[in-house]
Amino acid sequence: MPPSLDPHVLAYYEQGREDARLAPVAGNEADSRLEFWRTQDVLRRALPAPPARVLDVGGASGRHAAWLRADGYDVELLDPVPLHVRQARAKGIPAREGDARQLPEDDDSFDVVLVLGPLYHLPARADRVRALAEARRVVRPGGLVAAATINRWAVLHDGLLKGFFFEAHRREHTMKVLRTGHQDSSTDLFTVAYFHDPAEIPGEFADAGLSRPVPHGLEGAAWLTGGMRERLDDPEQRAVVLDALREVETEPALLGVSGHVLTTARA
């Protein structure tokens, strides 16, 4: 039996909001669209040529798997949330239930393994390293592993931007997260989660046997900039924003500004 999913995490995602959140459509929140487009941008530069075989672990409703398939990749999706599996299948994506810590796949069977959500919801470091080690196990020697993390400081930046940091009980909760990285189920802002200090990421990758990790800040400071939603609605201005973020994506001093970090490494 694979490890079980925290019931609070399951309940959160069974609300069905994740598919719409990542939709890169006009008017959607700037941070969500930047997360999607910048993930796509970093991966397209790191991936081997299609039709490489890709395992999308924790791939949710298949937003990323869909464009990967359109690009010509042979993609399979695993996710622990039954609703996500159904949504991915509705997009024509081969999908089944599975846990990042115990992948039902053979050794050395994929060219790429994506871990774009599971590390958020594994509070124990040992479980995060286990998930990364499983990705390393099933990817071919020299293959690509890419894993996403939420930044420790994102909860503070988001609170200042959206105003909830000025509510005393939420401010207290935010400060606890900043100190520990751990978010419990007592807040309505998200669900049980772990937020990484970017400095932690290389050690977890190394302990999983992954070499040369390269962290990429996805949203940079753009997600905190006024008027960004409207700029992203305009294709020309959006291109300027994405080009600017690409220029500073691996600058160590700026990694903590992004909401998310996408780290690539080789098996």
Score class of each variant (00 low, 15 high):
3 P>V: 11
19 D>I: 13
20 A>T: 12
21 R>H: 14
22 L>T: 05
23 A>R: 08
23 A>H: 03
24 P>L: 06
30 A>K: 02
30 A>P: 05
32 S>I: 00
35 E>N: 04
41 D>F: 13
42 V>I: 13
54 V>N: 09
54 V>L: 10
56 D>F: 04
64 H>K: 02
64 H>N: 08
78 L>I: 05
91 K>F: 03
96 R>L: 13
96 R>Q: 15
100 A>N: 03
105 E>D: 14
110 F>W: 15
112 V>Y: 02
112 V>H: 03
124 A>Q: 15
124 A>N: 07
131 A>T: 02
131 A>I: 06
140 R>Y: 01
141 P>Q: 07
144 L>K: 04
149 T>N: 05
155 V>D: 09
157 H>L: 12
170 R>N: 15
172 E>L: 10
172 E>Q: 14
177 V>R: 08
185 S>L: 12
188 D>N: 14
190 F>I: 07
194 Y>D: 13
195 F>N: 06
199 A>N: 09
201 I>A: 00
204 E>W: 02
208 A>H: 05
209 G>P: 09
210 L>K: 11
213 P>E: 02
215 P>R: 01
216 H>R: 09
218 L>N: 03
220 G>W: 11
239 A>T: 14
243 D>E: 13
249 E>L: 01
252 P>V: 10
260 H>R: 15
264 T>E: 04
